[in-house]
Amino acid sequence: MEALQTVDLTKHYRSGLFKRKNIIALEKVSLSIEQGEIFGLLGPNGAGKTTFVKLLLSITHPTSGTATVLGHPLGQRALKEQCGYLPESHRYPGFLTAVDTMIFFGRLNGLEEKKLKDKAHFLLEMVGLKGWSKVKTKKFSKGMLQRLGLAQALVNNPKLLFLDEPTDGVDPIGRKEIRDLLIRLKGEGTTIFLNSHLLSEIEMICDRVAILNKGKVVRTGTISELTTQKLTYIIQLSAPVSDDLRVRLNQSNFSLDFKDTSLFVTLRDKSELNSIIDTLRASGIGIESMTQQKTSLENYFIQLMKGENER
């Protein structure tokens, strides 16, 4: 069952003097997220990632399109009762302590007063703020506020968690702790929607991602689907390639590279692979393994954005 589904979700803003300028924040975004998965939304600044989440939580109203979150249409109270949200640049009242902040947001979620205090302490401990529960939030560092924000987003045991740059300002150990926490939450059945610039983190924990550029979804898929370069192979050979064979292989139109007993080949068409294998075997060279080359999500993203922006 889908935790989230959007169909042609569009948001246009009016700006400038007399609001005559039309700005396209999102254009016909259709996405579907399964329950229990960690989904990452990537994109350069201004791509529309935050707007997308704001539309789902009715912080901003859509221009057109429809969406359901946990089976509820946008704007319903039941939808928000089951969601947690950590905004990108969140601000907490500085005069409240960490535990009071948790209790306040728990109240806004309609939770029972009696259970809130214990829950607040439990969540603060979970995000590594155990000794800080009675300290006013105005004394917190950015990383600590981020942890508090995460605890606040979890106060209502959400089925769907929206996190906008959750590790922003957090030290490397803290980042690892947050990643582990998200994986644990996923194991407990929570669906997690992650907006982040940190592609290495997305790569580590997300099941699927979508890439947004200029308000449009340009790619969706699993990390493996996106990072596997479909026409680039690494072929492990039983012996090094002779000079004669190198010359013959280079006469073809493939992009070839040799390193000891490894052959790196980039094809224009998958059928060309058979021709290479035939040539190698005809020369008496055995094939020990053959794998598709993978790239990092970061490299993939950069290449994709270059291509998109050149259009």
Partner: peptide
Amino acid sequence: EKGTIDLFLSKP
């Protein structure tokens, strides 16, 4: 203010 209203409006 940005960051405050997002939190408030995300609540039921």
